[in-house]
């Protein structure tokens, strides 16, 4: 696992996979993909980085503790459900707005926020599991 090629390539691979995971997340509503898959891809990316470079750089690169990321995700997912309360419709009712940005109509929705929350929970939880297991001394 500690070959020079792998160690050199791992950061690029990770960056690419992270980008791909976001792409998978965002297209999820209309094409195969979504929060769960995206989250798993991102988590694998970070796990690969951890195997290649050790867990310290990963934790450093992440800035936040992975569990914090997961908690944020859960919070966002709950929030996405609660937004419907403002609109006086039942919990978790999907709400859509279509603001236009530079003439392009961008669909935004609570559903998307929810999916992003799922993504963060999966990334955070799985990464924290993987990183914990990658420790030498546990």
């Amino acid at each position: 696992m500690n070959t020079v090629i792998f160690r050199t390539l791992a950061p690029f691979l990770t960056a690419l996979m992270l980008l791909f995971s976001l792409f998978v997340l965002l297209r999820g509503h209309n094409e195969p993909g979504g929060g769960f898959i995206g989250g798993l891809i991102a988590a694998s990316a970070l796990a690969i980085y951890g195997i290649a470079r050790g867990i310290r750089p990963v934790r450093h690169a992440l800035w936040f503790h992975p569990m914090t990321i997961a908690a944020t995700g859960l919070f966002l997912a709950c929030l996405a459900g609660l937004v419907s309360m403002v609109a006086a419709v039942p919990f978790m009712t999907g709400l859509w707005i279509y603001p236009s940005l530079f003439g392009v109509e961008i669909p935004l929705s609570t559903v998307m926020l929810f999916d992003f929350g799922v993504y963060l929970v999966v990334v955070g939880a799985i990464t924290s599991i993987a990183l914990a297991l990658e420790r030498e001394d546990f």
């Binding site: 509503h29 209309n30 979504g34 999907g94 559903v111 929810f114």
Partner: peptide, 17 residues
């Protein structure tokens, strides 16, 4: 629910809770 991927729509919208 404005989504073409039925599986994803079920997960995040119909069965969101």
């Amino acid at each position: 629910a404005h989504g073409a991927n039925v599986v994803n729509v079920i997960i995040v919208d119909f069965r969101g809770t």
